[in-house]
Simulated scan of single mutants.
Amino acid sequence: MTDFEKPVLSVQHLHKQFGPGCTHCEDPVSPSLVKNYCQVCGTVYACRDVSFDVFPGEVLGIVGESGSGKSTLMQCLYFDQDVTSGAAYISSYQNGEKNLFEESSQQQRYIRNHVMGKVYQNPLLGLKMNFSSIGNIAEKLIAAGSLHVGTMEARGTELLNKVNIPVHRRKEAPKNFSGGMQQRVQIAKALSNNPPLLLLDEVTTGLDLSVQASVLDLIKGLQRELGISIVLVSHDLGVIRMLADRTIVMLEGKVIEQGLTDQILEDPQHHYTQQLVHSLL
């Protein structure tokens, strides 16, 4: 298998539930679930047997309504949540042979700082708002073991230029920035250690349309320039259409359809996907 045939990320049978579960909701024949919620014990099944691969230089879109499990999936991939069961492998970590979810918390921090970057929907989760913009990037670099101040400053300046933050504002705190500028600082921070994999969780939600367009153009340009792989979560099919090569559709914690983005948008098979596509037209 060549490097381009080997997935950058492989997720296998990821399962995440909130609650203990019971004999009623775990009954394989007729579980007592309303959507993904058990009326008997109150357990929520946020992700149910989710599997997918992401290949080098590919943008994988994950789309679904609120509560479909897509953001929980991203939290699990970045270790913001513990999984209930399942496996994930990254080709650049231990030759893709170690299940990330079974690694120690120390190793998971290493993976976050060296192998993955994440841009959160809410910049408060991804940035220290009272640090300078370049200080936020330095924080990520220090966490990955960088100690040379001059090198960190040069890298921070390079990345802030790349995401179109004016040079005279690089030492300004993100709390003074607009939502779109905050997202651009998050993107710069996420890219600071040249990760092979970038996770983007609803990065344009809540932004004005013109700002959305500039952030999406930035992501598209950086992805092409750097050749990184991206997992992109959105409830907006317009965002998915613009950026994603392949798309997964989630509903009630399950993957209900997946394929090339053009195929999903032009010939959706599942009735829920058909409703999503028709709502875009």
Rank of each mutant, 00 (worst) to 15 (best):
Q186M: 11
K171M: 13
S10A: 15
G86V: 02
L100R: 06
V83R: 00
A138V: 02
E266D: 15
K35Y: 01
Q81M: 14
V255K: 08
L280G: 05
V119W: 02
S66D: 04
L222E: 02
P174D: 12
K70E: 12
T2P: 10
Q269W: 04
N164T: 04
L33I: 08
Y89L: 15
V34E: 01
F52M: 05
G150R: 04
E153K: 11
A143W: 01
D27Q: 01
K16L: 12
G86W: 02
G21K: 00
M242R: 13
K254Q: 15
G86D: 08
S229T: 11
L222W: 04
G57P: 13
A190N: 01
E202S: 05
A143I: 04
L276D: 01
T43L: 08
S214E: 14
D245G: 06
F131E: 10
Q182K: 15
Y272M: 11
I228H: 04
H148G: 01
L200V: 02
V119C: 08
L197P: 01
K171F: 11
S210F: 12
P20Q: 07
D245P: 03
V83N: 06
G126C: 10
A143Y: 03
S214Q: 14
N193F: 12
A143P: 03
G259T: 10
T247H: 08
Q106D: 14
S71F: 04
L237S: 10
E139V: 06
E26M: 13
K171Y: 08
S279F: 07
V233L: 11
L260Y: 13
R48W: 00
T84K: 00
E65W: 06
L216Y: 07
V163R: 00
